[in-house]
Design a protein around this nucleic acid. Structure first.
Length: 298
DNA sequence: TCACGTCAAGCAGAT
DNA sequence: ATCTGCTTGACGTGA
């Protein structure tokens, strides 16, 4: 079991998701930004290893405009060595990596252009993982996509499209249950038809479900992960008090997290904490994990 | 230095 | 119709 947090570290004083406006694109600007982002990514990973945080989500903004036509730089070649260096560190410390492309990735899009753009974006994410030398246990998590007023048809469209994706993309791709449209049962259904693993989001499941208990849900989603996919990944958050339903917590709720850890024993998975204060909560979670010998730490 | 309008991309749900 | 949230506010112009 590993603990992780997404994209940003507020402690170490650098940001690995710097970007710029499309209007101000230039090759120099892109090189400068990517250089900064990669340097900072490396620093965040080093911080994490020093603090036993061995799961990390790499920002989609690592290479701004990578999938946009404006991008003329062969950034893959330009930064090959830097990627390789970071990748070696990741593998040496057995850090688990995920990525979570933005809401614009719609695999089941009705509009062919939207699908095409989504594919380009997925290929960019795949290239990042490949340049880091990571195998199919590194995952790119997406939501199923749009509903367009007919969820059955939309799910069928996803199932039709999935085999058309390049194998290099597919080996990293997983779907995540969301809190509005596609719940766990929908994702399991799609997984049954395609073989795609289901990343279980605990918090989304609390908001939208079909009565499955959390533990049962973890088991069901876990079964969709095969040996080459690595340990199942799980997204965890809790409700921010006094906020509208579905808002992620500002900081970890130790009681809620402890309950979750206890009810999930002895299942093994890697937990991504989708919590605003990032590494602060991850540090607390690691501490909690170590405080109780019943929990799996390896 | 700071305020603040705007930022590649899509969709759903609330107002 | 317009605004907000989504994994995350931050870029960049104008004063």
């Amino acid at each position: 079991m590993r603990i992780g947090y997404p994209c940003i570290n507020w402690t170490i004083g650098c940001k690995g998701d710097r970007t710029f406006r499309l209007n101000s694109y230039s090759e120099e600007r892109l090189i400068e930004t990517v250089q900064n982002n990669l340097d900072c990514l490396f620093k965040m990973l080093q911080f994490n290893v020093a603090n036993e945080i061995l799961f990390f989500r790499i920002t989609s903004d690592l290479v701004p405009f990578a999938s946009h036509p404006v991008c003329s730089l062969n950034w893959q070649e330009y930064f090959k060595t830097k990627f390789a260096e970071i990748g070696q560190f990741i593998r040496a410390h057995r850090i688990r990596i995920s990525m979570h492309p933005s809401q614009f990735i719609i695999i089941n899009a009705k509009d062919a252009k939207v699908f095409e753009n989504s594919l380009k974006e997925l290929q960019y994410h795949t290239e990042v993982l490949d340049l880091l030398g990571l195998d199919s246990s590194a995952k790119i998590q997406v939501h199923v996509g749009g509903v367009y007023g007919d969820k059955t048809a939309a799910m069928e469209r996803f199932v039709q499209r999935y085999p058309l994706l390049p194998a290099a993309v597919r080996q990293h791709l997983v779907i995540e249950n969301d809190d509005k449209s596609y719940d766990l049962a929908d994702c399991l259904n799609i997984s049954g038809a395609t073989g795609i693993p289901v990343l279980f989001d605990v918090f989304h499941h609390q908001i939208k479900n079909n009565g499955e208990a959390t533990r049962e849900a973890l088991i069901l989603a876990g079964k969709t992960w095969h040996a080459a996919d690595g340990r199942p990944m799980v997204d965890y958050s809790s409700q921010q008090a006094h906020a509208i339903n579905g808002k992620h917590a500002e900081t970890i709720d130790p009681d809620d997290f402890s309950k979750f850890m206890t009810l999930s024993r002895p299942l093994d998975f890697d937990i991504m904490l989708e919590i605003k204060d990032k590494e602060t909560s991850a540090l607390k979670a690691v501490e909690l994990l170590h405080s109780d010998e019943r929990f799996i730490r390896a």
